[in-house]
Amino acid sequence: MLSARKIQVILAALFAAGLAPLASAAWGDLNMPVGVTELSREIYYLHQLILWVCVVIAIAVFSVMIYSIVKFRKSQGAVPDTKMLHSTRVEIVWTVVPVLILVAMAIPAARGLMNIEDSRNVEMNVKVTGYQWKWQYEYMESGVSFFSNLDSASNAARQLQSGVDPNSVPNYLLSVDRPLVIPVGTKVRLLLTAQDVIHSWWVPDFGMKKDAIPGFMNEMWIRVDEDKPGVYRGQCAELCGRDHGFMPIVVEVKSKADFATWLAAQQAADQPPAEIAPAIVDAEQVATPNSVTTPTAG
């Protein structure tokens, strides 16, 4: 029989081997993206704050545990102090100190939340509708409207035993036939709903996700930094049936000028009449009941 010590050594080695990829992976791959909006940065820093608070508490608590495990062993001749039963003083300390730490975490969290919920001064509205399994985007002001599906290369490769190596497909499962296009530096409000079941719209670089619920309309807003045009990718984040894993979200963020050109081109192309445009109102104004869309759930 192996001695306990030998077992421990072997297993410790196994453990280290298991964690080896940790060393090789860059920190950025392990952590939340900082993102490209003011909100995403705020959320990132909040995440860092709470993460490190937890790490510090963990180090403190685990140190005491490990010290006890090492120091107070019977095999080292430790004698139990059976008189140590309770102490109101320490109980109070370890109740009050965590309360303070929690308060310190709650304040920035509440502040961030208010920021996120502040949808004043929206400059542009896009209605986003989730379907099994695609997204529809409708530009409320200009009437441009289209569907966004998983692109065909990913779709071919993702079939059961397709024989296609996913690594050979660029942006496997994260690319679509028609991305959502928005301008930088503009407060864009997404109005989210769904046609069949609940979906959820999530682009990690924007820091936010929100559920798209049939019959209801949720809001969230994005303002991408002026200097961060680019393509940002995400996925549906609420189980919505068989192909939940296959309804990606791709957002192309263009400079304001490029966006204007793009929008004009879309409007010029064969577009259905802008029937939804008049419905949109600002959050401060109360909605007028004569708006035109038909109920979406039935």
């Binding site: 309309m217 939804i276 419905a279 759930a297």
Partner: peptide, 12 residues
């Protein structure tokens, strides 16, 4: 808080 639910989905 759900004015758009009414305005866009169920205006009447």
């Amino acid at each position: 808080t759900k004015i758009f639910t009414h305005a866009l989905n169920w205006p009447s």
